[in-house]
């Protein structure tokens, strides 16, 4: 863990040096890099704090028994509907879905649900779908959903089933 952390900081320092010196020497691609970083950073800094606060509130308020009953081992196929709905309204994408998934699993949600949720938050977030329809047309979106949703469900269900039979557990990096 130490070594990757060192690498991360080394990369970030090198990156900062590159961007700063690009501005000093007027290196255009470097300046563009910084501009797109700021664009993304702005989006993330608006999305991430609320997302993490909501996760925190979820952790302290929602009882484990509730999640276990509805999204846990005994629950039926309806969990996948929940995964679909929850993912559809997840803002930001994959990177937000991981901490959410981790919080849900520590409350007892089963793995099939976790993988379906993560898969769907890449696949069918509502705002993203609206963008897609306006730029690529609704037929494109419809075919993508009709083929992709069942496939994602199948893959998540099987992967969850397989890993559960092996006693696999998600990690919780913030507890390390």
């Amino acid at each position: 863990m130490k070594k990757t952390q060192l690498l991360t900081w080394a990369f970030l320092s090198a990156y900062t040096c590159f961007v700063v010196s690009s501005f000093i020497m007027g290196f255009e691609p470097g300046e563009r890099t910084a501009k797109s970083l700021l664009l993304f950073l702005r989006e993330m800094l608006i999305i991430l704090p609320p997302a993490f606060i909501l996760i925190g509130l979820f952790e302290v308020w929602v009882p484990k028994t509730l999640i276990e009953r509805h999204l846990g081992q005994g629950s039926g196929l309806a969990v996948y509907l929940w995964a679909f709905l929850l993912a559809g309204t997840t803002v930001g994408g994959l990177y937000v879905s991981f901490p959410v998934a981790s919080a849900l699993q520590s409350k007892g949600a089963r793995l099939g649900f976790i993988f379906a949720y993560v898969g769907f938050s890449g696949f069918c977030r509502i705002p993203m779908t609206l963008f897609e329809i306006s730029f690529l047309g609704s037929e494109f979106t419809l075919v993508r959903y009709l083929v992709g949703v069942p496939l994602t469900l199948f893959v998540s269900d099987r992967l969850g089933w397989f890993l559960e039979s092996r006693g696999y557990q998600l990690r919780h990096p913030e507890h390390d």
């Binding site: 952390q5 970030l12 991430l48 704090p49 996760i55 925190g56 509130l57 901490p99 913030e174 390390d176």
Partner: peptide
């Protein structure tokens, strides 16, 4: 408590982000 957990999670992932 919720806010402290949020901050902890956020802080531990910030370098990766």
């Amino acid at each position: 408590l919720a806010l402290r957990r949020a901050l902890k999670r956020f802080g531990s992932l910030l370098p990766s982000f």
